[in-house]
């Protein structure tokens, strides 16, 4: 199966942008990564088994493209994270603190936390997506949670 590009963008654009932003912390780079992912989907000869397969492919490709954007040398002169955050309207102060705390974490923990809490990915799905072992995912998730707890204190609950 292959979905129409327009429908695909309606479904996944914002989620993919959030994933990409989580990796590269730059509005421009995140948009580029998502654009490139959609273009690759459009031009590539891919056959997907299911909607879930499409979603997993889009997320995996977006993450890798966002990582690649991090290493391009013309990243200078783009809006800084602080400047970009000033343009965002958070629903609550707690949300803003959480966003800041996640952005302060190293990328390898940030992306695991994001896939788990935002995309509702299982440990196995995260492992498949990032090409790392399930035990590695568990370690990163646990350390990420500890970091969030230490930064946010009572604003972040202890996960069981």
């Amino acid at each position: 199966m292959k979905k129409d590009l327009k429908k695909l963008m309606e479904c996944y654009q914002q989620n993919l942008y959030a994933v990409a932003f989580n990796v590269c912390k730059s509005k421009e780079d995140a948009e580029d990564a998502v654009q490139e992912t959609f273009l690759q989907y459009y031009t590539g000869n891919y056959i997907f088994e299911s909607e879930q397969h499409i979603r997993a492919w889009l997320i995996r490709v977006t993450i890798n493209k966002a990582k690649n954007a991090n290493r391009t040398f013309w990243r200078q002169n783009k809006m800084s994270l602080e400047e970009y955050m000033e343009t965002l309207t958070f629903e609550t102060l707690e949300s803003e603190h959480l966003f800041e705390a996640v952005m302060a974490m190293p990328q390898k923990y940030r992306i695991v936390i994001h896939l788990f809490y935002y995309e509702d990915y299982s440990i196995k799905e995260i492992a498949d997506s990032l090409h790392i072992s399930e035990s590695n995912v568990k370690v990163r998730l646990s350390r990420g949670r500890t970091m969030l707890k230490s930064m946010l204190q009572e604003e972040w609950d202890d996960d069981k």
Binding site: Q14, Y17, A18, E91
Partner: peptide
């Protein structure tokens, strides 16, 4: 909480 915080991100 996480979803609420990151729902501010839009292209």
């Amino acid at each position: 909480k996480y979803k609420q915080a990151f729902s501010v991100l839009h292209t």
